[in-house]
Nucleic acid binder design. Structure first.
Lengths: 206, 206, 206, 206
DNA sequence: CATGAATGAGAATTCATTCAT
DNA sequence: GATGAATGAATTCTCATTCAT
């Protein structure tokens, strides 16, 4: 009975409820990817979803809530995808390859998600101007990579370097790949993946 | 280079003219760096410059014009700084080192410029939603780096790789460094520079 | 008396029906008393009653209907209370005292009702901006008081004055008492009652 | 140069600036008086003033600012009027008469102001739901009256009573008069004044 | 009986821009 | 050169209400 306008706990009719939520989140993703964070108004998002503006307000507490759930959703999905790929590898180098490869694979099929999440994370701020999402380093994804690299160094598989610097650089390299590809969809991500793999292979091996 | 991109008829008193323009551009830089692209309204910028909003409108054709000139200004300054440092190097590896090093040096003393330019370039769009600035690859800065790397490969100084991929990656690595540093000013950019130099040294050498 | 003012077709289970109606009316009272007329939305009222917004819409024709029934309900209850106290008095002065005293007594135990009814009566308007409730004079309560005073003058118990002016003033004095007490619950309504009784005693006696 | 959008300090072009401010305040007064606090949106106020909605935003920081200035303005004007009338009286009873009389006189020529100020003071709240204006007791006007009464008691001119209770009651009596008159403009305020004067004369004299 | 879902109207506010002075 | 004043468009959000289930 805690209903009211926004079913923030989201339990009621899970089937239609979830469908709408997905629909709106997807619309938000595509809108941000298409016109950028600053231009992605609730109006435009609703328009894209072909629903009324107030439906968004009904399902989400506000713009902040929506964008945060977009980010969470994408992080979760991305991580589920990558995690599965990492699990099949045993060596640190193998995991590094799998990390780069699966990231670019995921990108290929979820271009706008990647575009959107970058835009939102980079721009979304609290009222006082401080970023709402911590960037780069403490995204769990990068933390995982840091741990992989650290392990590789400890095991003597890699040369001695600062694992966080390299992890951040790998993460940024992937963003760069995405950026190149976003700019020119003709770029072959397969080739790009091979180049990056080689690059970080040389950069990390003894 | 930004002198020929001025939009409207504005030639009266070049001295006071330029002073105002600089003042406004600086205010824009600091405002964007502080509150982010989406929150950087002309109001806020004018407020930061301690001038009336209309002064901005008087000296620039509009918000777009202002932001574009901010970007041009920063690109020019940055390039002037880096160019000088590159000129003293003879080998390709030396130039790569100098490039990384000078970039991070420049950052250290122009943090908000870097923050701002990244924000603007990443977010500024035309009315139809397409990015107003091409990112990453065709910034002249990255093109120069590509050329350095290409030359190094040709000269046999570097192993064989796609110079553009590496150039983009270096560029992104520097952005990553800036991001880390923006998040935590306690990060030692000197150490970071050494790590990155080593990383790309291993990544490029034969 | 509010039973015949129900708007639409609603007759099924009178027992549960009435329970709900009371619950909602009580929630409305407390909400208006707490946050004021202008901020008392159906959402907030439903929230306070721990029910869904639509339940309100189901039991009342609309917000107007609800608020009108709140007022009617409170008027009825208040009058029932005061009437009993007046009945025990024989002189006009005694009735005036009983009126003031019983009003303040009622207030003490129904603070939010009084607060709410004042707020609603003072603010609720029809679409064209005219007040939906006539204030002050034609509340039956004040009319009764007018009659008491008129009788007292006729009987020679009181000096000659305009009974309506005094009745309104008594009514307003009580509202003033409530206002003082709402602002500062530390005010002793017993003492306040004695002061008011004395005041109007002097004001009305020959 | 501290301009920006809202010249809150209000210094720039005092002539046109003040004219607009008055115009908007007047429009606010009449709008609140006509449709009530809860229905008095900035839209309606602007419409009444025959100006664009944003002009209001330009001259006032927001709705709160506007309404607070309305109240301040009215309080100031009212007090200036009443003060002058009080100054000509020497006895406490004379001052009490002058107070009642001047209040009703002022009302007669500023009906909507009185209506509006009552509405705003009674309804305007801060975000957390607490009233933004303290009512009744600590309006300086009532405090002045309290002091007049206290003095009269001390001088032996009045009987012994709680001056604050009587002051509040006088204030409320005037509101009641206004209410009666607002409801029925046919009420003769001159007669009403005589009645109230007599009432409080009897109520306070020894 | 009850209620989730949906919606359009309207709220306050911010913004970029124009114009007369 | 400079700027107050004005404005319309657009933004986020809240609200009362309706409807199918």
């Amino acid at each position: 009975m805690q209903s009211d306008s926004r079913p923030s706990g989201r339990k009621r009719n899970p089937i239609i409820e979830e469908a709408r939520r997905r629909q709106i989140i997807d619309a938000a993703v595509e809108t941000v990817a298409a016109v950028g964070y600053a231009q992605a108004s609730l109006s435009r998002i609703a328009q894209h979803a072909q629903i009324s503006k107030s439906v968004v307000s009904y399902h989400f507490a506000g713009k902040d809530d929506l964008l945060e759930q977009v980010v969470t959703q994408i992080y979760d999905d991305t991580w589920a995808y990558i995690e599965a790929r990492l699990a099949t590898e045993t060596t640190s180098a193998g995991k590094l390859h799998a990390y780069i490869q699966s990231n670019l694979d995921y990108m290929r099929s979820h271009r706008s998600r990647l575009l959107a999440v970058g835009d939102i994370v980079g721009n979304h701020r609290t009222a006082d101007g401080t970023p709402r999402f911590a960037t780069i380093t403490d995204e769990s994804v990068v933390m995982v990579l840091t741990e992989i690299l650290r392990q590789g160094i400890e095991d003597g598989e890699f040369r001695d370097f600062d694992p966080q610097v390299v992890a951040v650089t790998v993460g940024q390299a992937l963003i760069g790949a995405l950026g190149r590809w976003a700019l020119d969809p003709g770029v072959d991500l397969g080739v790009y993946a091979a180049e990056l793999t080689a690059l970080f292979d040389h950069a990390t091996r003894k």
